[in-house]
């Protein structure tokens, strides 16, 4: 059995009280509860404080460029479909630098889970506005206030993602459950995680979020398969912020639809130069 001690790593360099600690705890718990051994796991992260997370736990790790964790995660998943692939970003990484990769990964429905640590600010570069900063958020790069934010949940549903959810770093238990659901989901699973930045975001604090977040009811009261209702729920932001699975549908994954991927993982297949002989005859 996998134990929490299997998911220990380097000591985090995050600020004391950072929302990332809750996310790390929830991810480790989810991996243990799903009994995923570290060598079966691939964590692909970007750059930012979120991107450091893989080093503070365990697994195969590909710490990628800023904005780019999703494409190598896709390449690795196709190379070895047996890997559990989790991509990890911050809001700048996912929705700014990596915006194009994000919408197309949603659309193609790759079978990976995407954790976005959404603290509505750039932390590692010390406090500039991010794509999800609230309207009017004043920073050194937005002295007149930030432009209206991207709504990642709406964007993901519109782009065709098949699992769209929002978690809160201040509720690790709920987040653990979301991450488990995301990993178990066949297809692209977004978990946008409200993550207070204790150093650079004095507006969207733990307290601010705690006063607003509420858990979407499960078991029939809220139906995440209803796309129109989900888009409506995704718009809710302000006095009340829903967390939980906002949208979910079953659909074939990208990988399921590639005939070449039927059978053993690509990485285990032998290299056979003789394979080219049949093709050569076409050119004669």
């Amino acid at each position: 059995m996998v134990e929490l001690s299997d998911y220990s790593g380097l000591n985090p360099t995050w600020c004391p009280g950072c929302g990332n600690f809750g996310i790390l705890k929830a991810l480790n718990s989810a991996l243990v509860e799903l009994n995923i051994e570290p060598h079966r796991l691939l964590l692909v992260s970007g750059i930012g404080q979120a991107g450091k997370l893989p080093h503070y736990t365990s697994g195969n790790i590909f710490n990628s460029l800023h904005g780019r964790p999703v494409p190598p995660a896709i390449g690795a998943k196709i190379a070895n479909r047996e890997l559990v692939v989790v991509a990890i970003s911050g809001d700048g990484d996912a929705y700014g630098e990596g915006g194009n990769h994000f919408i197309h990964a949603c659309r193609r429905n790759h079978d990976i889970t995407y954790l976005v640590h959404d603290n509505q600010v750039y932390g590692l570069t010390k406090g500039q506005a991010s794509p999800t900063s609230d309207t009017g958020f004043v920073t050194k790069t937005t002295p007149s206030g930030a432009a209206p934010p991207i709504n990642p949940v709406t964007l993901a549903i519109a782009a065709g993602a098949t699992f769209v959810s929002r978690g809160f770093a201040g509720d690790a238990e709920h987040l653990t459950d979301l991450i488990k659901k995301g990993i178990n989901h066949k297809g692209f699973a977004l978990i946008d995680i409200l993550q207070p930045c204790v150093s650079f975001n004095q507006k969207n604090t733990f307290q601010w979020y705690r006063q607003r977040v509420y858990k979407l009811p499960e078991g029939g009261e809220y139906d995440p398969a209803d796309k129109a209702a989900a888009l409506g729920k995704a718009q809710e932001w302000g006095d009340k912020i829903p967390i939980g699975v906002i949208y979910r549908q079953e659909a074939p994954t990208y990988e399921d639809q590639i005939p070449a991927l039927a059978g053993a993982p690509l990485v285990t297949r032998e290299i056979s130069p003789a394979q080219v002989e049949n093709v050569i005859t076409e050119f004669l």
Binding site: L42, P71, P72, A76, A79, L83, H101, H104, I258
Partner: peptide, 30 residues
């Protein structure tokens, strides 16, 4: 030739994605 030869060709959203996907596959061992 993908199905016949067991080669996956991903039409990526842009060249940045293309090279990063290729690197991901290379890292994973193909």
């Amino acid at each position: 030739k993908s199905g016949e030869l067991g080669i996956v060709m991903v039409h990526a959203e842009d060249e940045i994605a293309a090279v990063n996907m290729t690197i991901g596959a290379g890292y994973a061992g193909v």
